[in-house]
Each structure stands twice: as C-alpha cells, then as structure tokens.
Design a protein around this nucleic acid. Structure first.
Lengths: 202, 202
DNA sequence: TCAAAAAAACCGACCAGGCGGTTTGCATTT
DNA sequence: AAATGCAAACCGCCTGGTCGGTTTTTTTGA
C-alpha cells in the first residue's frame, strides 16, 4: 500500500477509535493505550502518527469541527436565496443536528478543554464569522444573535446532559427558533440599550 | 477549639482551596495532594473529612449550586410583585452574574462531568423546577423558555470560553433578554408546532 | 532494471512520575 | 479511655511517553 494512504488510514483509524471510546466510555477513559487497542494499531505506531495525546485530541476536534461545518454548509446552500435570514436558519438547524446526534462532539471538546483550552479557539473563531454573517443579514441583529444563542445553548446543554427539556420539548423549541415569522421585530425596539458601542449604521 | 467547628473549618478550607486551584490552574490540576497543600491541611486530614476525591467534588459543586441559588432567591424577591415575569427575570439576571463572575462554577462542573456525570443531576433537577415556574407565569411559554435558554447559553459559553461576543456585546444581549416589553408575543403565534404533546391547559 | 540502502511506518516491552487512597502514629476533645 | 481530628510516610496502579528493533515502502545509482 502507498505510504501516504497508509498514514492516512492509520490516522483516520485513530480518530475513529478515539470517538468510539469517548462515546462508549466517556472522555476520562480516553487513554493512549485504549486508543491503540481500539484502533488495532500498536502504541508505537500511534505515537509515530501523533506526537502526543494532545495532538490526537486536536485531530479529533478538527474532525468534529469539519463534520459540523459540512452540515452547516449544506444548510446554507439549502436556505440561500429562498430564506429571509439564511445564515441564521442554517446555524440553528446545525445546532439542532448537534443536539440530536450522538453527543460525541462536545464530549470531545470537554476532554480537551480540561487540559488545553486553546484547542477550542479554532471553533470560536469560526463562530465569530458566523455571528458576523447573522448580524449582517438581520433586520434586528440583536434578536437574531439571541436566537442563535438560544439554539447554541439548547445544543450544548443537551450534549452535556444539562438540558431540563424533554426531547419533544426541545424539538418544539428548535422549531419555534426556526420559524422566522414568529420573530418579527417588536415595533418599539430598535433598542440599543446603553452600551458604549454606537449602533451600526444599517 | 470545638470539635464540630474544627471539622467545619477544615471542610470549608478544602472547598475554598479546591475552588482556588480550579480557578488558577484549571480542573485538570485539581488533585488531592494539591488540595491538601493549598488548604494547609495534611492529606490524611483531607481524607478524614472526605472519603474520596469524588466526595470533595460533590461538596464543591453543592457549594457553587447554593451560591447561585442564593443569588437567584435574591432576584426572585426583588422582582416578585412588580414584574410581569419575575421568575424568568430572576433566572436571566442570575445567568448574567454567572457569566461575569470568575468562571469557577462551570469549570468545577466540568471537572466533575468528566468522571461522574450524575453529580450534576442535582443541578438539572433544580432547573426543572425553574422551568416550571417560568412556564407557569408566561404569556407565551415557549418564548419565555427560549429567553431563558438564551441566557443560559450566554452564561455557559462565557464560562467555558466559547462565547464569540465581546463583554459589551454580551451585556447588551443580557439587557435585551431582560427587557420584557421587547418580547411581546407575536399576534400570529400561539403556535404549538406539530409535536405530539397536546398544548398544556395552563 | 534492479539490488542495495535509506526512509518511513509500525511494533510491543519498558519506564518514570503522578495519582487516589491507605496506614500508622500522635495530639486534642469528649 | 474512647473517639475524633490530624500528620506524614507509604503503596500500587495507571498513564503518557520512550526506545530498540522489525517490516514495508521509496529512493538511489550503476
């Protein structure tokens, strides 16, 4: 087998093994030996592909981020044009996916955050862009941001097992968040409540 | 010194030490030896007061939960009577406090969640009650829940360092969440979007 | 074209340090 | 004198990471 694809295969097996362990046993049991065992690769091989455990974590996180970025892109494409606020809708829909899927993503983040908080800076950076897009397209930017935040909160709490809502209730709330004409800007509120920043021109 | 108060003092010192370590070094560095060192109590003494590390974690979490419960009660008292939705307002205000304070609370939760997810069930149980109260007092229950969720999300992401907003922006969003007359129910939406559950009588 | 050599992928035993927890012994309360 | 609170040395396990050696692929150069 080709050398490059060999490495690729191994690295991939490692990432999948790590995700499986996190999903099955929790982030606390994600050890290098466990990863080696689960992936069928020896520890030496594992350490050849990833210099350290942190490197493995990083790869896992990047994979998960890319996974949800892809979903996000799909929704963006789907909503573009025929939706009054496509970016917002796409992000809410993506959060909904994160909330229902196997909760691996944030549990991985969890494990990472405990040791290396900066591994998540990448994710936050992506969020900044999305926030920009949501603000730009919004009639009432703060309202849009809050809808996004609510969706985010719903997803994170669900993944972390902190969500006090039933599945049905959560689904209903996501629907409401997505239902654009349930969120018309109240006539009285342009409302930049005292907060230094000058209200953006638009 | 009295025996009971001596124990009390020690237990308290341990909890404070644990919080200090989490805030300063992160949850990963919260070891029994570190707690003993930081609190000035020997490891033997520590293990005499707490049977295991899990017991320490539990005590720390309970302390933090009580801390925010107290804040919550204060706001409840403040808003009761003179506010159209006192419970909701109180919870949003409490979340705001959590977002600005030192981020110890959720980092503690973090450390706990990695090993013992059930330690947080207490917190979730309290949330269920709050959700009930918010629903009961609301004109548009789902809207109220979403405002609560948004506040929650804002707080959690801030604490975890995942919030893409600036401090000023976050403050503005909290203000908006609290501003009750910016959240009138849209005329068109009673809106129980298809979701099995019959709309509660309330 | 094809060995030979270099490099890359891989293996699995090994190790040092850190960790949660125990034990033994002593001082102070009850 | 019994019990409680505390001290400090100690223990075994687990974990991340290393190391010498083997196999497989790639490069070299005659």
């Amino acid at each position: 087998m080709d050398n490059a694809t060999r490495s690729e295969r191994s690295r991939n097996a490692v990432i999948q093994a790590a995700l499986a362990i996190i999903a099955r046993d929790g982030p606390a049991r994600l050890t290098l030996d466990a990863i080696a065992r689960e992936s069928g690769i020896s520890k030496g091989g594992l350490m050849h592909q990833f210099r350290s455990k942190e490197a493995v974590l990083k790869a896992v996180l990047e994979q998960q981020i890319e996974h949800f970025e892809a979903i996000s892109r799909d929704y963006e494409a789907k909503f573009a044009g025929n939706h009054p606020a496509p970016h917002l809708a796409a992000q809410i829909a993506t959060s909904r996916e994160a909330a229902v899927g196997s909760h691996v993503a944030a549990l991985a983040a969890y494990g990472a955050l405990a040791d290396q908080p900066d591994l998540l800076s990448a994710s936050r950076k992506l969020d900044v862009d999305k926030v920009q897009a949501i603000k730009a397209e919004a009639d009432d930017p703060d309202l849009a941001l809050l809808r996004w935040t609510a969706a985010r909160g719903l997803a994170i709490t669900a993944v972390l097992g902190l969500c006090p809502f039933s599945d049905a209730e959560r689904a209903r709330l996501f629907d409401r968040l997505l239902d654009n004409h349930a969120w018309t800007r109240p006539a009285t509120a342009a409302k930049p409540v005292a907060a230094g920043k000058a209200p953006k021109s638009r």
